[in-house]
Simulated scan of single mutants.
Amino acid sequence: MAHEITRLHHVGHVVQDMPAALDLYRRLGFSVPAPSYPAMAPREGGEPEPFGAANTHADFPCDFLELATVVDPGGHVPADARLVPLQAPPEVLPTLVERINATSANLADCLERFEGLHILMFSSSDIDVSAARLTTAGVRHGGVNTVRRPAGTEVETVRYLEIDGVRPGVEAEGRIGVVADLDPRIQATRLADHPNGAVGLVDATLCTADADLDAVQERYERYLGRVPRKEGVSRVFDLDGATLTVVPASGLSVLLPGEHAPALPALVACTVAVQDLAATKHLLRENEIPLLRTPSDDVFVPATAALGAAIAFRQAVEPRHQDGRQQGIV
């Protein structure tokens, strides 16, 4: 059966201190460009000042890891930050500002729960089909939004929807949604070699209360249009070249030794495939990053050393095509 939900689109790590997060991710071996900060003049004729929410990505061919933070007026902005003045027709600008402020308010709420992973977006080959399927399945969402933004010499069109859960655009575990597949031509312009050999996202791990496991499984069955397989106490949704693992709180320390969820439900970990796991481990040890091993022989940086999110690394089985499929797999 064909599925329009193809893979993980991105996982978002919401942090208190963007400079500290940049330092961490670069020590983890990711190539992370300067973050973008929306900016607007507080008064007519004034200089643009950052506000709202800032972010940057560790980009891979088909997906990415996002770092996001709430802009603290007058707070510490990285020296290499890229200010992006808002440019929109006068009749559109208030709506744009409202969206940015809503996003930053959601991120602030996430940070009140804990610093860590709060964003999980799935990739869709047909976002309109995804929206219709979710509506038919009784999943409330905000409809398909379209954003156009500069991407070098071109304009990138991003179409996405956010699932409405505990409130509009936010589920209990964070911001969950669906985004149209990345444009491989534009995404290719963002790619840089990661010193750790990272090539893509291969898992996101969601931890839930034991009593809620069946309900969370049912919820994601409707989101993804897929039924998971059982792996020990976990429920694993197979996507194209990646998985979503839902684990009960009682089983988290088996899956990721020493880890515990700061709240329930919570996105507790993500796993990145690397070209040479031995080389990745060597780099991390050289950078004095603590490492633990999973029962499946992945290695991970514990959440206590990675701003509230366990970051795991796995040996890539085969290189990915630009369309996200692994070679030899149809």
Rank of each mutant, 00 (worst) to 15 (best):
D59E: 11
G75V: 14
G142C: 05
H118Y: 02
F122L: 08
S125P: 00
T157I: 11
R99K: 12
R27F: 00
R320P: 05
R219F: 06
I329H: 15
P262H: 08
G241I: 03
E171R: 12
V274Y: 02
Y223L: 12
Y220P: 01
T208K: 05
G251L: 07
A105D: 11
R149T: 14
P78Y: 12
P42Y: 05
R293M: 14
T135G: 12
E318G: 09
L191E: 09
A180L: 05
V233G: 13
E231T: 07
L267H: 01
H76Q: 15
A211I: 13
H282M: 13
E162C: 11
R226D: 09
F51Y: 12
R222T: 10
P33T: 10
Y25D: 00
R235K: 15
T56L: 02
A278R: 14
R82C: 03
E221Q: 11
V227P: 00
V178G: 08
P295Y: 14
R293L: 15
G241V: 04
P195R: 06
P50C: 02
R167M: 14
V202T: 12
D203T: 01
G308T: 03
D183Y: 05
D164M: 15
S125Q: 03
S250R: 12
A310Q: 09
A261W: 03
D298G: 07
K230Y: 10
N145L: 14
G241H: 03
L206M: 07
L213R: 06
E98S: 04
L244W: 02
M40D: 00
I311S: 08
E98F: 02
L292W: 15
A88T: 07
V71F: 01
G52Y: 03
L22D: 01
I5C: 06
A180F: 01
G225Q: 09
V274D: 04
R190E: 12
A102Y: 03
F60W: 06
G143T: 03
L28W: 00
S234P: 12
D238E: 14
A54Y: 04
V233H: 15
A39P: 07
V92S: 04
D23H: 11
V166K: 14
D23S: 12
T95F: 01
V246P: 00
V15Q: 03
L284D: 00
D212A: 13
A316H: 06
T189Y: 11
L191F: 11
V15F: 07
R235M: 10
V155Y: 09
S31H: 13
G138Y: 06
R229D: 10
V158S: 12
T208D: 01
A79G: 12
N55H: 06
E112M: 12
G200Q: 06
L255A: 08
L96Y: 00
P319Y: 07
V178E: 10
N287L: 09
P35I: 07
A305D: 14
A215I: 10
V14S: 06
R133D: 11
M18V: 05
A209M: 00
R26W: 06
H9E: 11
T6I: 04
S253Q: 08
